[in-house]
Design a protein around this nucleic acid. Structure first.
Lengths: 196, 196
DNA sequence: GTCTATAGGTGGATAGAC
DNA sequence: GTCTATCCACCTATAGAC
């Protein structure tokens, strides 16, 4: 059984690079930034991730895996669909409270200049998010805890768009209050109020 | 009376730089790109805009002025508040159809690495948009053509966030259909259906 | 107002020793 | 797996001739 290796070099490189990309974007961060912070030479970084595109792909893979694991954890906790949506939105809030953006939101802004190998992975992140959301939305509507019109997939796409945008705009105003306001509004619009 | 000078060099530099930033972001575009496209040397560009920050500020000023002029034009056309909201959303759609992003949406993603002199101007763009939207929303609710809860400013902030996010995510999926879907949903959620 | 030339720095990436 | 040393392309910006 292999060691967990939570602290091995590749892991630490990914952690630092992830934060830098979430804050600055893919074009604005450099191997030199990571090098300075970890006090490892740029040449060593290239040993672990030969090109910036390779590092970028690893970042998206890890981020998507962690995100999907968080969604599985939400499912595992049980609770109704509305609670799951709230927990989903809380992920966005917690990322912004760490003064970070969604990795793939940032990469979506960088999309046109991204190495081609990274682009499909960005889209796939959104698609996987929407797939999970669509399932929760469908469950909730059937169970009577959620209310919305049309296909679950359409509402799921709407939620992802709104949360990503709110996160982006909120940061430029400073703080998380704008994202909180959008989350409250989105949840309120989906909540099925039981007849009195 | 000064010439209109619609085609003078500074204007052409701004036009090209605007498109490049809308597509690639502020960090990804360079004086060299503009230089190549206009076949003017980088040194000449620096004559008109001494620093990249100065060029960036001019871009935001011009973009905001054009945007506010478009909003004034919407007001001038008359029509009810719902029609004005639709016209507002159509601006976003038309930008994306040109395969561009909102300048300030892109700059919001670049926010942390932006020259400090540019940051307040980005926020101001959003603020001015929301101010216009809040007024239209208030008018519409009073006149009975729009329906929403809470302060107009809160709904205005929500609209800007959702449209910016939808634009960003839509591009990574290719095409404008995702933005169209979000626009339809936002407008439907605000429309006051007259009692039958 | 545009040019040539260049400065001074940083970018991603590689070779080869240890 | 980490290092030193280096490459070359590109970056923003400036000096000074025309």
């Amino acid at each position: 059984m292999p060691t967990l290796r939570r602290n091995d070099t590749a892991r630490r490189i990914l952690d630092v690079a992830l934060r830098l990309v979430q804050v600055q974007g893919f074009n604005a961060f450099s191997y030199a930034d990571v090098s300075a912070e970890l006090r490892i030479t740029k040449a060593s970084l290239h040993h672990h991730f030969p090109t910036k595109a390779a590092l970028g792909k690893a970042l998206i893979s890890g981020y998507t895996a962690d995100f999907l694991a968080a969604l599985a954890e939400i499912d595992a906790r049980g609770g109704d669909a509305f609670a799951k949506l709230r927990a989903y939105a809380d992920i966005y809030l917690s990322v912004l409270r760490q003064e970070r953006m969604c990795l793939c939101g940032m990469l979506a802004a960088d999309f046109e200049t991204l190495p081609k190998a990274m682009r499909a992975s960005v889209t796939e992140f959104f698609r996987a998010n929407e797939e999970w959301l669509a399932r929760v939305l469908d469950e909730g509507r059937r169970a009577g805890t959620l209310r919305f019109e049309g296909a679950p997939a359409a509402t799921a796409a709407f939620l992802v768009s709104s949360l990503e945008g709110a996160m982006l705009v909120a940061r430029s105003f400073g703080g998380v209050s704008r994202l909180e306001a959008v989350v409250d509004r989105l949840l309120a619009s989906l909540r099925r109020v039981p007849p009195s």
